[in-house]
Design a protein around this nucleic acid. Structure first.
Lengths: 207, 207
DNA sequence: CTCTATATTTACCGAACGGTCAGTAAATAT
DNA sequence: ATATTTACTGACCGTTCGGTAAATATAGAG
């Protein structure tokens, strides 16, 4: 059998790519080293040579992805001035980011389920810039000041994250038939987030 | 060694309970029949005798839990009149339900990750009653009519679900230090959902 | 009391698991 | 030219995997 070209970096990448796809799709426990070797067109021993153990490989997969995710998001969250419109645009950008990267969503979910502590540090780093901008928007009188900015952030992030986590499930609902499934929901959420669900001036005690 | 009492139903229950806990905590692939036998104080062969296969056991675990979850929720969503306050109460009740049942949240998440189609049918059944009440609230002029009721529902459910899915992660944030972590967030969300994030009468084009 | 159905137990299976290891070959340093 | 390092290979290890078959015990029906 023809030998692999001797290129450690390329091999590591092939393995990481294959492992990421399989771990995201089937989960850690349901993914075997043999399957990763097959998909990456390498060898089981090569995986262990480069990454030490299956557990360490999983860690490496998460780190690579969350690193780049964190970087992208810090950039995204720091762009623009502090105006209502810019905040809407940032929300849209976050939506687009997850929309275009289903594997990332799966990986995030699996990391959450494992209560991966390292993951929580990433989260604080990547989101703190947005929290800060929301706080500034409150000080500028653009957003209501009586909700902690971290809560505002979490409402945005939670709605969007859960939308893509569970999309496969409610995309079959008859209620939601639409060719703009994602976009319609995003528009609804933005409308609601900034303007609220109540009919203005309507009777009824403020909840 | 003392023999088990010959009680099929009790044995099935013991196995289901143990399997539910382990599957929720570690996932399907990372849970072995041996571990389930150990935790349920039965035998591996008993599991296969009563449930056929590991896959079938996982299915049985999900069905049992989602069945009762669906029933509870249909009740919850049909109670009360159609008023703003009742809708707030229902939202709070849903929050309390997930708050009191971390295993359920984990199980739901894992079912989502597997794109379990059966799970989506449960979802449509359990949530349709709430969608209907939201629609009535719109017709009664209580909620704004220009957002599809299914979207309103999904915003509520997504925020709450994701809050408990990822709680372990952002509960460590310095931003959120609080002894009423859950309750504070719920209050913020309800405020925002019904009143919006914008300062009323503020300049800036509606998004 | 006996028979029967089946819950429970033990023993066992082949396959697949994660991981080790000795050996080969290519690049790099000396 | 030679020594050292290291990417790579394939054979191999002990364990655990999900699942099967047969033996055993027991509750309930006749």
């Amino acid at each position: 059998m023809a030998r692999r070209p001797r290129d450690a970096e390329a091999t590591r990448l092939q393995i990481l790519d294959a492992a990421e796809a399989l771990f995201a799709e089937h989960g850690f426990g349901s993914t075997s080293l043999a399957a990763i070797a097959r998909q990456s067109d390498t060898h089981k021993s090569l995986i262990l040579h480069h990454f030490g153990s299956k557990e360490d490989l999983w860690q490496a997969v998460k780190e690579r992805r969350f690193d780049s995710f964190t970087r992208e998001q810090k950039d995204m969250f720091q762009r623009g001035r502090v105006t209502l419109d810019e905040i809407v645009q940032t929300t849209r950008a976050y939506f687009r980011l997850l929309q275009g990267d289903p594997v990332l969503v799966q990986l995030l979910t699996r990391a959450e389920l494992e209560k991966d502590i390292g993951c929580s540090q990433y989260d604080e780093v990547r989101l703190s810039a947005f929290v800060e901008r929301l706080r500034q928007a409150q000080q500028a009188g653009i957003l209501r000041p009586d909700i902690p900015p971290a809560h505002l952030l979490l409402i945005i992030v939670n709605v969007i994250t859960q939308w893509f986590e569970a999309r496969a499930i409610f995309s079959t609902w008859s209620e939601l038939e639409s060719e703009r499934l994602d976009d319609d929901f995003l528009d609804s959420f933005i409308k609601l987030f900034f303007q609220g669900a109540r009919v203005p001036g309507q009777a009824g005690a403020a909840p």
